[in-house]
């Protein structure tokens, strides 16, 4: 690792001020950033740890919404939303391993927008709102391609607001070495329609499978998407799977998710 200064502000306002400096970067749970620093793929001059900011942590359930602080670890989400939004709890419960879940945060996962990360699928399928220190961003506008988001330099995710669907499920095929999804699909059924988000599959990261959404909005059953297949154009091809294999899995995962959501 290259050398840097590490600061631990106590409030969002102090963190935002520290991040305004040249070469400063936010540190969430560090579960992605620290390995990146070790590989010398990033060289910040200053890391602004969000771990000491109490106002960034916590989960509240209000009516048909769940609000999760940007610095909340996956393990806390798994525990706190189990009743209000079981599909989201189950997603958090299956990220990595217990040690990663005790450190990694929802804000870090969404800011990083790894094309194989779990939370982006939940945020996009739920139509979540990403709240930052300066604005609110709809999930549909937030994800902008592999590792790219609508966040500006130094902008911090302070909260994520999830509308609670009538039924939902996250179906994940785990790549056993990394424990990330090889392909995963989040299906969420709302009064005004069904949203289907796919992660792990596309070069451009998480996306909505609109043909499946249309079919499922008309008939929420696995057979409604039986004949549909995703296009393998733009899918990831690597040693774990070809683009065609991933495209095939999207259909399988979607049918399973609908069956499990019931």
């Amino acid at each position: 690792m290259y050398a840097f200064e590490l600061v631990r502000p106590a409030t969002v306002a102090e963190a935002v001020a520290a991040l305004a400096e040249d070469g400063a970067q936010a540190l969430g749970g560090g579960q992605t950033l620290i390995p990146t620093l070790k590989a010398r793929l990033a060289m910040p001059e200053k890391l602004v740890s969000l771990g000491g900011i109490a106002e960034l942590r916590g989960v509240t359930v209000e009516g048909d919404e769940v609000r999760i602080g940007g610095g909340t670890p996956h393990a806390t989400v798994a525990h706190e939303v189990a009743k209000a939004y079981p599909a989201l709890a189950s997603l958090a419960e299956r990220i990595g391993d217990p040690h990663v879940r005790n450190r990694g945060t929802i804000g870090g996962s969404l800011a990083n927008n790894d094309p194989s990360a779990c939370y982006p699928a939940a945020a996009l399928a739920s139509g979540a709102t990403i709240v930052t220190n300066k604005r609110e961003i709809a999930a549909d506008d937030y994800f902008q391609g592999m590792f790219a988001t609508a966040l500006d330099e130094g902008e911090i995710i302070t909260e994520v607001i999830f509308p609670i669907p009538q039924a939902a499920h996250y179906e994940k095929i785990r790549q056993p070495a990394s424990r990330f999804p090889l392909v995963a699909v989040f299906v969420a059924k709302f009064a005004d329609g069904v949203r289907v988000a796919v992660t792990g599959a596309a070069e451009n990261g998480v996306f909505r499978w609109t043909e499946a959404e249309e079919a499922l909005s008309a008939d929420f059953s696995p057979s409604a998407v039986e004949g549909l297949s995703a296009d393998s154009d733009g899918m990831i091809g690597d040693m774990h799977g070809t683009p065609e294999y991933r495209a095939h899995l999207i259909g399988v995962m979607t049918r399973r998710a609908v069956a499990a959501a019931g």
Binding site: R8, G30, I34, P35, L47, S49, A75, H99, N102, R103
Partner: peptide, 15 residues
């Protein structure tokens, strides 16, 4: 009280 990987957290974060 939480189990974590000590190779993936800075010493200063455990202050």
């Amino acid at each position: 009280g939480n189990s974590i990987k000590s190779c993936n957290i800075f010493a200063l974060e455990a202050d």
